[in-house]
Design a protein around this nucleic acid. Structure first.
Lengths: 324, 324
DNA sequence: ATGAAAGCGCTAACAA
DNA sequence: TTGTTAGCGCTTTCAT
């Protein structure tokens, strides 16, 4: 069932049928209604592929996420933020994986959103090199220049968190860090180190690769506490780490919210269920995803110049794990 | 940069260029290499939209998930199972949301995968009514007939779990149920009720709507324990419920793995970090997603008849919460 | 207000 | 082995 058949059945030309169905305002109200009626009777629906070819736009944007992290609640929310925003613009969202770099199928999408682009991710590199505009959530630490960037002020928020711990009496704050392959991980590390310097305390930092398994996180924290028994607060950067190390801390005889304060740099529902609930930075992933999609559309429409950077607010959710 | 320009630059016809780049085996090795070289020098990449139009297939499949649940680890894994499998077939995956039902853009995809189709979801209904084949993960409890179904034996696995609890000495097992809008939720409820009947014990069941907030889950469990202090085991169906109610159980003076056994019908990383770790049914969502995609491709290729049902194994992960 | 024709970039049938 | 031609279904000039 295509446009020609509808036109024929309605006794008009292809063009008129097309214009009628798209409300172009070119046809008389009478014929428009007639064509619409005929089309719906025939169960016609336009072929979006043909339309895309003619209009040179696909009606879809691509979305790429770091492979190792795809289980996390953060990314799931991010994805649906992007999808929601895209839906309001009548756009589809296509998930882009490793295949899409070697292959040459870039332009089945009008643009791409990259969530936390890893410097080491070849897909990211390929996508940034492709002809379609790209918006990243957080800075890309590699060479290429995305068409837009959505940024949150992680440095300021981590400072706020560290100040909070300090105000609660913590004097020796340790930091379980993410690797520096993302701008986020890098920023957090340097912020922590600077904060320690400003406060004249010795940094206790352990770095972990992205997507490290639970056991590794736990080993790191155990080692941290053994090496430094005087540690009285722990901030965990990797998603899921804070909850994962809770048993270890307890096994070491520590009381969370008592002689040891605990906080996470990524909030999640799980942190509200732990005993005690764990203080965390709320990254507002859904809003971040929506902001990325919006920026991409603004760039695509030409309203916004390439290279635009937009701020995305984040928050701190204080819970019992950091209240003495 | 299109095929014609490449052909011109290479001094061959459009067709030859096309065949050379697609390894159709129609052109001589000499010209093939020449065309490929020219194309890559010019930075040519084929237009997938044009190809789709010509070949009457889009190279993408759609994926729809229940809106309310989209944060969960289960669905994130499921999504990437689908994406992985699709990638091996050189297919894209497009996320389908509410918009796609009212609108008529179905056929930008060659088929759709529906994860846990809710009977009440209008998108699901629209998709099942659309001309493209659909594969569901779990049965659709409404009227339409999907082209394929991937099923796990939840009844058998819940029986196994209940038997396990019974073997550990539990005599009064309560069940926090999901609503019956999915086949999964329905199956679990009836299985629990039948098990109770077989064992001559009184069922203690509370049903919760899909996507209920934490507070509601906790209230339900509190009420359950108050009404029935003799309950010595609790099975939670909804994703996240088991972890969420842990504090409530503790506040009620119960010892998990001691005077109260606790288990979840959906496994997740969070359940390995709780104290104690919680026994759960491992639904193997990644494998399930991959199986759905695979079945869809088999249907699309015509190898597999419509209406095919395939089994997908699941497992039980016993943890300390159910070992006395 | 409507129609005829061109063409988006590609692949497949038909020739040579 | 290669080239020529005809569309896939749509939107957009350009006429009328």
């Amino acid at each position: 069932m295509n446009l020609i058949e509808v036109a024929k059945a309605a006794g008009v030309s292809k063009t008129t049928a097309s214009d009628a169905l798209r409300n172009s305002g070119r046809v008389s109200e009478r014929t428009r209604q007639h064509v619409v009626a005929v089309a719906s009777k025939l169960g016609y629906s336009p072929n979006p592929v043909a339309r895309s070819l003619r209009m040179a736009r696909t009606g879809a944007i691509g979305l790429h996420l770091p492979e190792v992290l795809t289980r996390s609640e953060y990314y799931m929310s991010f994805v649906f933020g992007v999808v929601d925003q895209a839906a309001t613009m009548d756009y589809d969202v296509t998930l882009l994986t490793a295949r899409h770099v070697s292959s040459h199928r870039f332009h089945r999408v009008d643009g791409v959103v990259l969530g936390d682009p890893l410097e080491t991710d070849t897909v990211v590199h390929g996508l940034l090199d492709s002809p379609v505009p790209a918006v990243t959530c957080e800075r890309y630490t590699g060479e290429a220049e995305p068409a837009g960037v959505v940024l949150s002020d992680h440095a300021a928020m981590l400072d706020t968190l560290l100040d909070h711990l300090h105000a609660q009496g913590a004097g020796h704050i340790a930091f379980l860090a993410s690797s520096t392959v993302t701008d986020w991980g890098r920023t957090l590390q340097s912020t922590y180190l600077r904060w320690c310097e400003r406060h004249g305390t010795r940094p206790r930092l352990r770095e972990m690769a992205f997507g490290s398994p639970t056991a590794i996180m736990q080993d790191n924290v155990r080692a941290l506490l053994n090496a430094d028994p005087e540690v009285d607060a722990l901030v965990c950067a990797p998603d899921g780490a804070a909850a994962a190390v809770l048993p270890v801390l307890r096994a070491a005889g520590r009381t969370i919210g008592g002689d040891l304060l605990l906080a996470s740099c990524v909030d999640s529902a799980a942190l509200t269920h732990t005993d005690p609930p764990i203080t965390a930075i709320d990254l507002r992933p859904r809003e971040a995803g929506a902001a990325c999609a919006q920026l991409l559309f603004d760039v695509l429409s030409g309203e916004t110049p390439k290279g635009t950077v937009r701020a995305q607010p984040i928050g701190l959710t204080e819970r019992r794990s950091t209240r003495r």
